[in-house]
Amino acid sequence: MPGLITPPAGLIPLGGRPRLRDYLRMAWNRREFAFNLAHGQFRAQHMDTVLGNVWQLINPVLLIAIYYLIFGVLLSGARGDLGGGDNYVGFLGIGVFIYSYQQRVISAGASAIVGNLGLIRSLQFPRAVLPTATVIKEVLGFASSLVVMVALMAVSGEGIHLDMLWFPVAFFLITAFAMGGALVTARMTEAVRDVRNVLPFVFRLGFYLSGVLYDPHRFIDGTRFETYDWALLFNPFYVYISLARESMMSTFEPRQLPWIWAAAVVWAVVALVFGLWYFLGAEKRYGRG
């Protein structure tokens, strides 16, 4: 029968879920750990290739070149303006960069637990540090994308302008949302490894539905919105891509402004809170299965 022993003051019960405040404080104390881990993973990821981390730059540039060739050149006459007005390549470029950044963060989250089982089994620390480290790794990787993105804006006629100062705010919200997603995929993959095989298809679908290649407004009748249209417009990926376009392109005017900033903040908060809650639900189980 439990309850025979009354524990003296000063002892803490083990095995339960820690209070959120204590948990976050412990995680914050390990921020150096997260940075160190992220930096190591970042350096290691392209170590076996000749060009190394230059691939971080080449990958999206090649993608943009292919999409531009097909949709901007070969099919340009078929449907008229797909988006971005005169600057389709800028429109497309931001779409590809932002979408692939979100995809990378959320997919990398899937390996955060299952890829670090050695650490988990060796040492005790708040496990949420691991998905955080993968997010930091992708933020580091985005630095080179940012350079290309700004250069693309400069040569495609947008120039360098003051609105670009909004981009860091947009990027912060994008990252917060993606981190929520990474926390979710981290736990899901730990429970069912197959999730990793499904994710590429989910993101492929998202790619076509989130206005990377075309502006969904071109296909929506502005006078009456169907449920389906709302789903298209408030899809978080589309919201964040539009947010980035708005700050980077002086010619871009998303029509659902000003809600778009509100939508971006709401999506980020919801994703992060849900992700943390979901991830912490299995905190004690990680590393044992």
């Binding site: 524990p7 002892l11 803490i12 019960p13 089994r121 060796s122 005790q124």
Partner: peptide, 21 residues
Amino acid sequence: QGEVWARAQPTLLGVGAAMQN
């Protein structure tokens, strides 16, 4: 069933743990 109480979070050392291989 039952309870475990401790003054601090215990540190567990197991065999075969490998950190980052």
